[in-house]
Write a protein that binds this DNA or RNA. Structure first.
Length: 463
DNA sequence: CGAATTTGACCTGCGC
DNA sequence: GCGCAGGTCAAATTCG
């Protein structure tokens, strides 16, 4: 591990400039460490004991810096190690220049350190938000379970929960592990629910299980689901089991980002490979299919399609979670989509009436996120187009909108602005009226602070 | 020549 | 059962 001292490198001629560290300890100023270079005049930083007639001064240990570059420090009063001959302007200038160089080096060092700390802080923030979202989702889930009034219902949800987990493991071909954990439950029962119908979230699976508890179970064809999952995640691959488990929980939720862009794709920091293109019904623009290629077996896919009504609007739909570390540039979009998906899952826990809470939420003004629970795949749409006339675009009923501040046109990157907003929004997923939501959001200091930080970050990214 | 893209074929789910 | 639409695969093609 390098020390703060080692990091301070004057790139010009690779001359190391050592300066006092944060702790205040004294360092050596060695401007020309490369003494072998005969072309350079060795810069000596000799500390000479001043032997003047003034013994009093000498006894105080005053010294003179001989750098060999005619560099002089500027402030003799603050630098007690230098004897300033008031009558010699040359020496005074030397000292002044030398001091300037020291300060310059110190500034450079501080600047570098500042950048490094900023970078570390950003990384920590991202990690913090991601963790917050996971914790919030888990807490919400637990609270929903605790709200259950009867023991029977609790038991039913416990069983349901196990089945959901079991289903995830089954999806991963880990049936044996689950059977060992909960051998009393038939895993095929859960799989039948999902395989027989349209794609659905685990939440809706839970709802169905609750509604259909005790129902007759249709014949289960394991080859169907296995085949489909195999097709979805690639054949012959064996990605990390834990990552796949997490993916199984989130994969059915999609996050769609609408943004104005002339480019074929909005830049989200990830590397994508196109694997297909289709003409979708009702849109003259083809839909392109991409998969993440930053890591082998990464399950994240996205669809890119231009809006039929306004072809300057690009709709990018993300599905799945990355199973690999992301570069800072990609963290923004990844955390946004993750936040949105988490928001949906945490906000869509089974309510007392058995419906998804998101279905009961009402409409709000434009420049917003939209949740559509009625789509084949639950989709959260983040509308960043700031359309002057949003009514011209189709907006399905029964959606919940999150208002965002004005976002510049031609948005191409920087959805971090949404990440924290979505997280905060997830806290209010149980609120039943849009007015309540609006009030809750606007009075939440954390939300405001996060929004300000996000806007600042975002504005810095806009070219 | 390897990587990326294109494109037709294939699979699956759903509605009729 | 059939047709349609969405999604994916993989061979062919293009690109750097």
């Amino acid at each position: 591990m390098d020390t703060a001292c080692d990091r301070i490198i004057d790139k010009r001629d690779d001359r190391r400039v050592y300066s006092p560290g944060i702790s205040g300890e004294k360092r050596i100023m060695d401007f020309f460490a490369d003494h072998n270079n005969s072309c350079k005049k060795p810069l000596r930083v000799d500390v000479k004991k001043e032997s003047t007639a003034n013994d009093g001064e000498s006894s105080r240990g005053f010294t003179e810096l001989d750098t060999g570059l005619n560099l002089l420090t500027a402030n003799a009063e603050s630098d007690k190690s230098v004897v300033v001959d008031e009558t010699s302007p040359n020496i005074k200038e030397k000292i002044s220049t030398n001091k300037l160089a020291v300060l310059q080096a110190e500034m450079d060092r501080m600047s570098t350190e500042n950048q490094r700390l900023k970078s570390a802080l950003n990384q920590m923030n991202n990690n913090y938000y991601a963790l917050q979202m996971h914790v919030a989702a888990l807490m919400e889930h637990r609270q929903q379970i605790r709200k259950t009034t009867t023991v029977e219902e609790k038991q039913m949800i416990d069983v349901t929960e196990k089945r959901v987990v079991a289903r995830q493991f089954m999806d991963l071909g880990q049936a044996a592990i689950v059977e060992r954990d909960d051998p009393s439950q038939s895993l095929s029962e859960e799989r039948t629910q999902d395989c027989s119908g349209s794609p659905q979230t685990n939440v809706s699976v839970m709802n169905d299980l609750q509604k259909n508890s005790g129902d007759e179970i249709a014949a289960f064809d394991p080859t169907k689901c296995d085949r489909r999952d195999e097709q979805r995640f690639g054949r012959g691959k064996s990605p990390d089991v834990a990552e796949q488990t997490r993916e199984a929980a989130m994969r059915r939720v999609r996050v769609s980002v609408r943004a104005r862009s002339e480019a074929a794709m909005i830049s989200d920091g990830c590397q994508w490979r196109k694997y297909g293109q289709k003409m979708a019904k009702g849109n003259p623009c083809p839909r392109a299919y991409y998969r993440c290629t930053m890591a082998v077996g990464c399950p994240v896919r996205k669809q890119v399609q231009r809006c039929a009504e306004d072809q300057t609007i690009l709709t990018t739909t993300y599905e799945g979670n990355h199973n690999h570390p992301l570069p800072p540039a990609a963290m923004t979009m990844a955390s946004t989509t993750s936040a949105a998906a988490t928001m949906f899952l945490s906000g869509s826990m089974p309510s007392s009436d058995g419906l998804l809470n998101s279905r009961t939420l009402l409409s709000c003004p434009p420049n917003m996120a939209t949740i559509s629970a009625s789509a084949p795949f639950p989709t959260i749409t983040l509308d960043l187009t700031n359309s002057p006339n949003p009514s011209q675009f189709h907006r399905p009923q029964g959606q919940f909108h999150i208002p965002f501040p004005n976002i510049p046109q031609n948005f191409s990157s920087g959805p971090q602005i949404l990440s924290q907003a979505l997280y905060n929004q997830s806290k209010f997923s149980g609120v039943q009226s849009s007015q309540d939501i609006m009030s809750a959001i606007t009075t939440d200091p954390n939300f405001t602070a996060a929004l300000v930080a996000a806007i600042t970050s975002f504005m810095g990214n806009v070219q």
